[in-house]
Write a protein that binds this DNA or RNA. Structure first.
Length: 262
DNA sequence: ACATTGACCTGAGAGC
DNA sequence: TGCTCTCAGGTCAATG
């Protein structure tokens, strides 16, 4: 489930807790969670160094290691980070544990092991290797760029929004929210929107993601007008009071209001 | 060349 | 009560 707003929230937590603390060692509790690196090598590359800053692209979080590339965090659908100040027992399903010299730690937790931890020399290399499109909230990702991202896609707009090669950061939950706020039916062909609808969709994308970040990606703190807390079949639509409907679109369960989204 | 579908993984909740 | 079944979904490989 971690999509752009969730990962941005993790990033803020990471920055508040894990920068500028010397890493004493990296303990990998589940080797299979590492991608393109071994636990021995990860520890060797990080021990004695510290995280200097962190950045996000789409659903990926990058921790810049002083003088040595970036640790990549991907969260799959059940991943998150948790920092601890004392030498306590790590949370259940901790897969990688970064120990700091001062006794604190940062845990990468993932129940369903869909995510991974990796190390990359540069963000740019990682982004191009994984074919990621522009970040949905990047300042230079403007309306013109948005339109060309959707260009030449005749299938459902919902799957275009979720296509990380076109736009990075939007997943199943937030694509539903964006389409709901824009009043666009999820099955509409991506390249079949008129100028006005494209505009609505673009500003809904920016607004939804920004508001979700402000709410700390917690649905219970989001505006009343949001569909997200009502993302269940048969729930009342926050727009018209009608009934929210569930339907499989491109293999994913889409929730939408047939009345508000034409 | 494109679009869609299934495997991966584990736990929660439903149904019998 | 307790077992089994289904579903959740990001990404990538395989299929249509």
């Amino acid at each position: 489930m971690p999509e752009l707003p969730d990962v941005e929230t993790f990033k803020r937590g990471f920055q508040a807790t894990s920068l500028h603390r010397t890493i004493s060692r990296v303990e990998t509790l589940d080797e299979s969670i590492l991608q393109d690196i071994t636990s021995v090598e990860l520890d060797r590359q990080l021990a004695g160094r510290e995280f200097e800053e962190s950045r996000r692209h789409g659903k990926y979080l990058f921790g810049h290691v002083q003088g040595n590339g970036y640790v990549v965090f991907h969260f799959g659908m059940t991943g998150y980070l948790e920092a601890a100040e004392k030498n306590t027992e790590p949370p259940r399903h901790t897969r990688v544990l970064f120990h700091f010299e001062d006794g604190g730690s940062l845990a990468y937790i993932s129940v369903r092991k869909f995510g991974y931890v990796s190390l990359t020399p540069t963000m740019e290399a990682f982004i191009s290797e994984h074919g990621l499109g522009p970040d949905a909230l990047a300042e230079d990702f403007d309306f013109t760029a948005f339109k060309s991202a959707l260009d030449g896609k005749s299938s459902a707009i919902k799957s275009a929004l979720m296509d990380q090669a076109r736009i990075a950061g939007i997943g199943n939950d937030y694509s539903d929210e964006i389409l709901f706020q824009a009043g666009v039916h999820p099955k509409r062909p991506a390249d079949g929107l008129n100028e006005d609808q494209s505009h609505k969709l673009f500003s809904a994308m920016k607004q939804v993601l920004t508001a979700a970040i402000e709410a700390g990606a917690d649905p219970s703190r989001m505006p009343d007008s949001f569909l997200l807390p009502h993302r269940k079949n048969g729930e009342p639509c926050p727009g018209c009071g009608g009934t929210v409907r569930a339907e499989k679109i491109a293999g994913r369960t889409a929730y939408y209001c047939p009345k508000c989204q034409s």
